[in-house]
Amino acid sequence: MAVFGGHRRDDNPALPPGQYLTESFPVLSSGPTPSIDMEDWEFFIHTEAGQTHRWTWDQFIALPSQDISVDIHCVTSWSKLGTGWRGVSLDTLFAEVETGFDFVMAHSYGGYTTNLPLGELLNGRAWIAYEYDGDELDAEHGGPARLLVPHLYFWKSAKWVRGLVMQSEDNPGFWEENGYNLHGDPWREERYA
């Protein structure tokens, strides 16, 4: 009988259950990387009252931004610790938004969607990120801008994000309709439906 030795022994308290450390930055996308014309780029938040808050690229990058250092965890079991981003807090973007709905559907250029509870996007826990590691965010990794929700599995951090639509219920997004968990907390191993 062959005996598995293993050699990583990532005994790191920052590592959620079932995850291993990687130094590279794997790419997982369900389709081609969309090409986005910056002239047309927008970010919006749409509420149940029919109100749409919009930012052009210039308006968006003029907003107060933050340097963010966070650990990220992919459902395919890799984690990357201490990744550095720059982005706009969702608290800033939601400052003027009035909504009674508790859930959000994030929509991306290219058609990707993912659902999130609004409460998990606020209070310094989520951003729209547009720089990675000091450089502009590569298209492969979701540039020009992506959602960054590091406390959930990384499929929730929608690449090429375009806008958020408020929803009354936690309706599933793309991967959530394809076998993945509605919530996606890595510390509770909420990987699959």
């Binding site: 794997p26 790419v27 389709g31 058609g111």
Partner: peptide
Amino acid sequence: VPDNIRTERFGGT
């Protein structure tokens, strides 16, 4: 059209 292309990637960049 992009909607008719499905992808699966592996490895880092």
